[in-house]
Design a protein around this nucleic acid. Structure first.
Lengths: 318, 318
DNA sequence: GGATTTATACTCAATGTGAGCATAATAAAG
DNA sequence: CTTTATTATGCTCACATTGAGTATAAATCC
């Protein structure tokens, strides 16, 4: 059947497997293979014969290939336009018979991250997203000037610039990671735009480390989703060990949000929502020892729990 | 290649195309074909050769087949386990060569809904989700007693019952449409569970009108997503005509949420967020005439706008 | 022992929210 | 033409939440 032939595709499951190492959110990557030395997200094919659902299929190859214990898994988005890669200037189309691929992106959270060299820090790929030490320099020094030139007098472009980058007079919104990346892609400000043939010349500035195919876009989607979810579901605890101090929870939250939070108010929220309970033990470190807590609903699904409202503060406009 | 053969699938794009008729949210359905007379959602294949992205493909066949103007489109979820249908007791497997289908669900919003017979009211499929006239009788008379018996002394089941149905002593959460449907499915309380072979006997009670395959699940996903989105993005206006009264906005919101809102507080939110602006004209109906408004950001994307916080009230526990 | 570091308790003003009363402007009823 | 029903809109007020800070406690480092 001709119809069936043109409609048949392969399914790739790509995963942004996220963990936190120290005070840096990290993401599992696979070694670079192309001439451009860009890392990529782990992915594997979905075999509908073997696995009843895609999530089962995903968990299967993650266990097989990484031996990781991923608890929380969430589907992000399905991209049907990965064909981009064949439009790029990098050479001939290598796929036989123009086999199409649909990629389903997943977000997974892992408490541990062994083998440090395989985990890549979020903010090396997105340096403009980490505001913990104030407004990142790269914004004023590179990104914003370029984007302003790009938008020119185009009313729509200027409006988007204001919406997603908060330039010139709106607040920065930490959830717009994907929107910002896509705007930069459109403006030819990231390497992937060059690889996909959207712009002819390789950009001079290094706006974060690029990734293979649309993997940086998937990571951006994961970051957006995780930052948003953190605010209404207690997913942080999927990244915490079984016992932790309240400061550790806060540091992990801050790492993901890329922003500093008010300590006392953060703890007030944790207390009000009754998400943690004391273990009785104390941590030993520098300074006054902190009480060790554990997540109250560890046995249950963390889905549909009250969630932790994050005290974001008012003056987020630097 | 054997590997490629088992991994190759067909992509179906299924759409929950939602509109509001009077005070009822409705959803475009296609006539029933099976012996069970169950309606289904419109769907069509995705041809990766023809359409660059899946959203383009979706818009294409919606335009071709329904001549509808859908503005807002959002991807919901990708289901790889539609194969359920072949497990059912309804007879032999009809698909030649066991061709697998992955279905990508979409939510679309339409301002108009012509041809009334093709649009099906949400709450005929989900009668327990409409709380505008108080707690629906079907809950206490059928669903809850059955679910309580089903959970028995199983701690996990009782916990889920409390979480998603608020029984016995938690508040009803209007966003848990999908969770409630899935719980009822698992408990064998909806017709689809019978069709899929999860339970042997056809259920006696009619817990809402069933749909084909997993379409009611997709509709539940759409309802959950829309109810949630309404609270932080101004998507209601995708369902409103170009000029409207504030009461019309409220009635539409209430229809989707399945709950009654406090009038004055609802308007306070609209005013504060500056989402509407007066047209100068007045509506003529019974009672005092209301001012006609229009959406302030009609030309722009309604994505990433401040959004309208909905005054939900406190005593939502009947 | 004093400086440093971290934890935790408590306060307070500003804002947001739920709930309600009061009043205005129209059409329909008598 | 007055009353009544109906819808729209203005306003208040108590209460909860939040942002931002001060004060104090308990440990380590030197």
């Amino acid at each position: 059947m001709d119809k069936n032939h043109t409609a048949s595709v392969l399914i790739d499951l790509s995963a942004a497997i996220v963990s936190v190492r120290g005070d840096q959110p990290v993401c599992l990557t696979v070694p670079d293979v192309s001439e451009y030395q860009t890392p990529g997200l782990p992915f594997g094919p979905f075999y509908p014969d073997r696995h009843r659902t895609m999530e089962i299929g995903l968990r299967q190859w993650v266990i097989e290939q990484t031996a990781l214990d991923i608890g929380y898994v969430e589907q992000l988005y399905t991209f049907g336009d990965r064909g981009r890669r064949s439009e790029g200037p990098e050479g001939a189309d290598n796929q036989n018979e123009e086999e199409h691929i649909v990629s389903v992106g997943y977000l997974a959270l892992s408490k541990q991250c062994p083998q440090p060299d395989q985990w890549s820090e979020w903010y090396k790929h997105f340096p403009w997203e980490d505001w913990r030490n104030g407004r990142p320099n790269i914004l004023n020094q590179q990104i914003i000037p370029y984007l302003e030139a790009w938008s020119g007098s185009d009313e729509f472009r200027r409006h988007r610039l204001q919406q997603v980058f908060g330039f010139p007079d709106k607040a920065w919104n930490d959830e717009f990671v994907l929107d910002r990346y896509e705007l930069m892609y459109e403006a030819g400000l990231v390497w992937e735009a060059y690889a996909d043939g959207r712009q002819k010349e390789k950009i001079s500035a290094q706006n974060g480390i690029a990734m293979q195919l649309d993997h940086r876009r998937i990571l951006a989607t994961a970051m957006s989703r995780l930052r948003a979810k953190l605010k209404y579901r207690p997913v942080v605890f999927e990244l915490m060990p079984s016992a932790f101090t309240l400061t550790q929870v806060q540091k992990t939250t801050e790492a993901i949000l890329g922003a500093i939070l008010h300590k006392q108010n953060f703890r007030r929220q944790l207390a009000k929502n009754e998400l943690v309970e004391p273990t009785g033990q104390m941590s030993k470190a520098r300074g006054r020892p902190a009480e060790l807590f554990k997540f109250k609903h560890d046995e249950n699904q963390s889905t549909n729990l009250p969630g932790l409202r994050i005290p974001l503060g008012k003056s987020r406009n630097f």
